[in-house]
Design a protein around this nucleic acid. Structure first.
Lengths: 203, 203
DNA sequence: ACCAAAGTTGCGTGCCACGCATCTTTGCGG
DNA sequence: CCGCAAAGATGCGTGGCACGCAACTTTGGT
């Protein structure tokens, strides 16, 4: 990867990170793109060369994570049963990467509160969900490859992708909702087991 | 229902309808809020007393439809098996209401094309998905009631709601994708059957 | 070392979301 | 039947955002 692409990725990451941090600190509409650009050391106009909107910048990290699920699925051994592979591919995205270690959160509770406020913003909810839709297309393609189904003809791969992402976001939403917190891995595993069992009504 | 509420509902419907029609005709960013307000016979400022954004106005009818799923589920006989009730509640929203009959579409193909262009708009995708999220909360509550589960403690009702809406939107998306079109009812039924069966990998 | 392509920046424009103050309509209690 | 409080509609003004356009700068292959 040349200097060009590396710099671009860095700027993108810096902008997204700045957008998230400032929004968690101050709230969505007390942050101007000008502020974000300044925090990332770039001109305000450049912001829109990377992201179409403030919301998109904030959702970018989430999008990246979701897209990696499809990539991980392709990396899994083809012999592995589909649902085992899917659940592992999702769980693999929940190990904290190096960028989290680099920027340790000072006040855990304050951060969580800020996150919750941030996600309450309508524009951002839409943006996060849209990221899910983009990732869904990728995942559906990967599922189609693995199962030998056809994206254009069959409902199956789309349905599986949608179900997987729905299970993931339901589990993480439940995680943000519960107090005291239940481990995410546990919730994800439970969700996948339920879906794979056809979500039978509890007796 | 008094004159007051009726008028309000009418204005809301008129605004949403005008927003959709104009957007399908001209495209999202060739329609100004001013135009929508004018078409609905109301002042531009009033538009924002009903909707927070242009996108919200367009997605409003979709939201209404989705919210009715939860209402329909509550109306179903409690003895009915859960998944039967859910699939019927969804299918019930696909009978054309009186407002469709009142405004017959002149050119079917042109309308479909406009719809597709409209739904390609990022802002609207987000808005449509957000409507789904709102409806999901309602549906989860209805599911919790019916199954005796707890919204705060159990993952189950949220998961079922998410799966149902995911299946619905996947089916309708597939409908918009297929050419020649497959009936929506068929796709919906197939989707529900697959989900209830745990989405087994095709042999 | 040069040059085309890619990326950044400044400027200007149209529109949008929304706060606030004012005017109009509604429907209820006397 | 009437007047009055509450709800809603409207006009105006403001801050900010998305984006087109036209320089200017950096990159990396030849």
């Amino acid at each position: 990867m040349g200097l060009r692409e590396r710099k671009k990725a860095e700027t993108r990451a810096a902008l997204s990170w700045a957008a998230i941090r400032l929004t968690v600190e101050r709230g969505f509409d007390r942050v101007r793109v000008e502020d974000i650009a300044e925090a990332a050391g770039v001109s305000p106009r450049t912001f829109n060369n990377y992201f179409a909107s403030k919301g998109e910048a904030i959702a970018a990290r989430h999008l990246d994570r979701l897209v990696r699920i499809a990539a991980e699925l392709r990396r899994r051994p083809p012999a592995e049963p589909l649902w085992e592979a899917l659940s592992q591919a999702v769980l693999a995205q929940w190990v904290p990467g190096p960028e989290v270690v680099e920027h340790p959160v000072t006040d855990q509770a304050e951060w969580a509160a800020g996150l919750r406020i941030m996600l309450a913003e309508p524009v951002l909810q839409g943006e996060v969900l849209r990221a899910g839709a983009v990732a869904e297309a990728e995942l559906a393609a990967a599922v189609a490859e693995r199962t030998g189904t056809d994206l254009a003809r069959d409902l199956y791969p789309h349905l599986v992708a949608a179900a997987v992402l729905a299970a993931s976001s339901t589990a993480t939403a439940h995680f943000l909702r519960t107090d005291p917190p239940v481990p995410v891995n546990r919730l994800l595993t439970e969700a996948f087991a339920l879906v794979a069992a056809g979500l039978p009504a509890p007796s």
